[in-house]
Design a protein around this nucleic acid. Sequence first.
RNA 1: GGCCUUGUAGUUCAACGGAUAGAACAAGCGUUUCCUAAACGCUAGAUCUAGGUUCGAUUCCUAGCUAGGCUACCA
Length: 596
Amino acid sequence: MSLQESIIQGIQDAFMACYQHAIDLEQVSLSPTKKEFSGDYTFVVFPFLKISQSSPEATAQQIGQYLKAHVSSVRDFNVVKGFLNLEVAQQQWLELFTSLYTAPSLGQLPANGKKVMVEYSSPNTNKPLHLGHLRNNFLGFSIAEILKASGYEVIKANLVNDRGIHICKSMVAYLHHGNGETPASSGLKGDHLAGKYYVLFDSLYKKQQKELMEQGKSEEEAKKTAPILVEAQEMLRKWEDHDQEVISLWKTMNTWVYAGFEETYRNMGVDFDITYYESNTYLLGKDIVEEGLSKGVFYKKQDGSVWVDLSAEGLDEKLVLRGDGTSVYITQDMGTADLKYKDFHIDKSVYVVGNEQDYHFDVLFKIMRKLGRSYGPGLYHLSYGMVDLPSGKMKSREGTVVDADELIQEMIDTAAHHTKALGKIEGFTEEQAQGLYEMLGLGALKYFLLKVDPKKRMLFNPQESIEFQGNTGPFIQYSHARIAAILRKAAQLGVDLSPTGFSQVRELSETEVSLIQLLQDFERKLKMAADEYSPAILSQYLFEVAKEYNRFYAELPIFHEKDLQVQAFRVALSAHTAKTIHCGMRLLGIEVPQRM
RNA sequence: GGCCUUGUAGUUCAACGGAUAGAACAAGCGUUUCCUAAACGCUAGAUCUAGGUUCGAUUCCUAGCUAGGCUACCA
């Protein structure tokens, strides 16, 4: 039983003893006491006044008396209004720390026997990844790691959108203007090469529209009849008919793009256990339409189109199959949902997709639940907000996107610049220095994108957003490097880091206690992050740990401390802090250095 | 039009219905004969508006305003 649990248990007993009334454990809020009041944990009595039938102060007094008398860890208490502040005995903190310090594992909750798939990234093959994808990829990777650490078996999946009219647009432009250009001949990364022709298509298309309108056609007509668009549509039909030439060009260009993506993924430090391709899944789902019809979940209109009526659930009627029998987006999504289940027998399925598709996933999940899928209740849309620029929303056609590869490189360059300016790479080989720049640049970027609640829209200012000071990745990384230096020195001095080395410590400072209090909260935060699908919770927590450690570092001496028991304790406390930071940052996909 | 989501210091972000709304950056003032100053301490600064529920509301409800998204036989 943890310290808090034993206190909560004591509070329950207190209510039984004082008021002959059982209270619900869930309702007891026990939180760390605010800095401006004395005490370690605070219990709020207001919700229980009906039970005690007395004033907040009197109730708090009575409970406090009981706890002091009956719960060994409670040394003393004070009451401010309806707030009961409890003081924990010093010895308890040392015991608590020792149990944390000697625990066989950190940051891995017991297996729960459940399987979850996390689908993320899911790029289109007609253009390179941009800033928005970075948020998606970092979120997806991190939440997968967090779920793993909280006891799930996790499958990371990527669903590549490799077909459709947008791919054909790049292909048409390339066909006419590519002149046989390849990634090798141009020195362009494959995904950037494809993106170049996608942009080219758009400008050619606009030009043709303009010409048609000058010839007297309406805007709408011009948009529909521009030759280059017609050609792209024709190409899509040929693709669906397995036309040799089209398929061959498609394969060639996609191969280039995949090579480019692979490089970007490697730089980002994300990976996948399985990759699905829409060219293989886009025909799935029609059998589910049949199933839905026979189960009465769907209905057919006169023109043969198939619909689902979700008005009882607060949504509209939605089309699930066109009148001509062809699929729409949701048809294949139904099929893919089943495919994922067939492949892995998952209990839960998480989709990391932007919030502009909230409605779509609402519909999809309601359908799968109506169809009675076993994994239906475990469907979850990890919906995240867009990343805006100071100029507003990113638009690929207007050239206002922040390219992922470029941004990563800029981050690394900036990290290199800072590090050199601070003169921190003495004794580093060129390779080690380069490794550090990458670790710091990427750490800054990932932390910046992960520290914000995923649901919220966020702003990215290329000039100002990426800092290396304050609430940042590098700050936490720096804290780790500081501790690493201490541990090296402790090893040199032969400090006894076994629990007996500090078991005689009697007096702890306030800062040491807060640090222990924070450190013991790690697994609870981990679980919270998993339950709420929010790496931000973990990010904030790690920042608090690093901040509290730096205060400890500034306030208290370690190697100048004469009492060797105290010295050993402080080294051990440092070591466990480093371990927690390392473990937590790993769940965010961020590495931590030994020196910086 | 309908539906969903947002609105907190100058800026970017926090706050299970709980105390005097926390951080970081920017601003100002300090800290280095001492383990890494990418650090630490101090000062100043905010809940969109109007009602309601509650012992207590940034949080829940209603209305409005603001910003964004969705509302295709597009993906």
